[in-house]
Design a protein around this nucleic acid. Structure first.
Length: 477
RNA sequence: UCUUCCUUAGCUCAGUUGGUUAGAGCACCUGACUGUUAAUCAGGGGGUCGUUGGUUCAAGUCCAACAGGAAGAGCCA
């Protein structure tokens, strides 16, 4: 008999039918009730066993973490905690779980840090089960959103020879023997002997290749792994993360910002519609965590309230110049509570972004038109020649979740910007070809998928929303 | 990379101004229990106090270095 998933049983009104259920034991109560979870949903199914008529050897091995298979009839539950339960006719232990050595003792509420060190098993817990089901739904919604809009999913290379992307330190990819590196006469490494015949790295962004796609297919998006070898030790940075990068021909900055907002609202609405139980559980988890904090640090909204606010309201849209004005007039600035000074021309610091998003507007904020000196060479120069058509979307609790811009499509302007910022023009000739041959105005943005998952789940550490986090000094599993 | 904090039983954490044999809850083991809901009840076992060095009559407690972890900053998504 084929197994039935627990989700199907719990989310259906059907009764009095026979089925087979397989999963992992969460708890065994009163020598009679086994709570079994199979990962298909947050809740467990209660299996009722007649212990007088069950082999003692089986009963002795019904322990937390053991895997079991049970066959029986689904009945309306006599107890109060659940609607239905499985009255078992037969019960089998598929895989024993020695409770003395099993690292997950869920009744002890192990800390997130402890679970992080046992990442190979943490997906069996309520919290991580919920997180990774929400993560899946978000990924699915990303593809659905772009597909419905007619975007082409483009796979940009993971290994790249371009070192001019300028988005951060790169991981080198090589098959050279590091104990015996071939050298040229001048002592430098001879990369002509390397696998690709040149120096290569893991990608830090698929944007430049994405632009090539957009200037042929119209609208494309990438969704793939991205690598930064920065020594960043924060709750919002990973060395390996997943980035979504749409790139659109014929879009200007305003259309770009509009798309980004629509996109975020769509995927959040998708999980509100499809992951209700998981989000309610994460909402409660966050509420309990908030209770531990002092009153003035607590969030005034619950997770579900925050998510509904994001889908229901337009994001606030301001220019960099307006943001500086707001900050200069703000109480913390006038009371000299900011650690960093505020002045036109310098980048917004975390404390400034947090003030704008969490105190002033209390919702996601799109900041546009930054000074050209603090942004990348490929962003389109505005007519004032001081600012570029850039946009960052700042989210409460996360900070920068989207970074994007209208791209510089004018060959002469782009070349002079590259020279100003010491970007090797010759090496980038393939990129400049798009501007030489049939250039068009276009725009795009990058969104850190894990930061989106952070926002949707209310988790606070990015290492808890990716199954196997890679951070400096840590690449286990 | 910088700053600050943390490391005591399998887990979560107490441990006073340095002072005898380092505690609790849960988990675990033994037993009881057929309507439990993180089941409950009775009994039991379990510790090189992160590592190394130092101060002291005496260090879980004070000092230093190292290791691991966390928070914040910078960089960014």
């Amino acid at each position: 008999m084929q197994r039935t998933k627990i989700k199907e049983i719990l989310y259906s009104d059907k009764l009095d039918y026979e089925c087979v259920v397989k999963g992992w034991v969460r708890s065994f109560r009163n020598n009679q009730f086994i709570a079994v979870n199979d990962g298909s949903c947050l809740d467990s199914l209660q299996i009722v066993v007649d212990s007088n008529n069950t082999d003692k050897d089986i009963l002795d091995h019904i322990t937390a973490g053991a895997s079991v298979s049970a066959r029986g009839i689904i009945k309306a539950s006599l107890g109060k905690g659940q609607k239905v339960e499985l009255i078992a006719d037969s019960l089998e232990v598929l895989g024993r779980c020695d409770p003395d050595h099993y690292p997950l003792q869920l009744k002890n509420r192990p800390s997130l840090e402890y679970l992080r060190e046992h990442a190979h098993l943490r997906m069996r817990t309520h919290v991580f089960g919920a997180i990774f089901r929400v993560r899946h739904s978000l990924a699915f919604a990303v593809h659905e959103f772009f597909h419905k809009k007619g975007f082409v999913y483009l796979n940009t290379p993971i290994i790249t020879a371009s070192d001019a992307e300028g988005a951060g330190e790169m991981f080198q990819v090589t098959t050279l023997d590091l104990n015996n590196v071939p050298r040229k006469e001048d002592g430098s490494v001879d990369y002509s002997e390397d696998f690709f015949g040149r120096s290569t790295n893991l990608t830090v962004s698929g944007q430049l290749e994405g632009e090539l796609g957009a200037l042929a297919l119209g609208e494309i998006y990438t969704f793939g792994p991205t690598f930064r070898a920065e020594n960043s030790n924060t709750t919002r940075h990973l060395a390996e993360f997943w980035m979504i990068e749409p790139e659109m021909a014929f879009y200007d900055l305003a259309e770009n910002a509009q798309l980004a907002q629509e996109f975020i609202q769509y995927v959040i609405q998708y999980v509100l519609d499809h992951n209700r139980a998981d989000l309610e559980f994460l909402d409660q988890r966050l509420a309990e965590e908030e209770k531990q904090k002092p009153q003035n640090e607590r969030s005034e909204f619950s997770l579900l309230e925050k998510l509904r606010m994001v889908t229901a309201n337009s994001f606030e849209k301001i220019t960099y110049t307006e943001a500086i004005d707001i900050l200069l007039k703000s109480k913390p600035y006038q009371k000299k509570q900011f650690k960093y000074d505020v002045s036109w021309g310098t980048d917004l610091q975390s404390e400034h972004e947090r003030y704008l998003v969490e105190k002033h507007f209390k919702k996601p904020v799109i900041v546009t038109d930054y000074p050209k000196e603090i942004k990348s060479f490929y962003m389109r120069l505005n007519d004032d020649e001081k600012t570029v058509a850039a946009m960052d979307i700042l989210a409460p609790g996360i900070g920068e979740i989207v970074g994007g811009s209208q791209r510089e499509e004018r060959l002469d302007v782009l070349e002079s910007r590259m020279q100003e910022m010491n970007v090797p023009v010759e090496e980038m000739s393939w990129f400049l070809d798009t501007r030489r041959f049939g250039t068009v105005p276009h725009a795009g943005f990058g969104l850190g998928f894990e930061r989106l998952v952070l926002f949707a789940t209310g988790m606070t550490n990015i290492r808890d929303v990716i199954p196997f986090p890679r951070t400096p000094k840590s690449a286990n599993f």
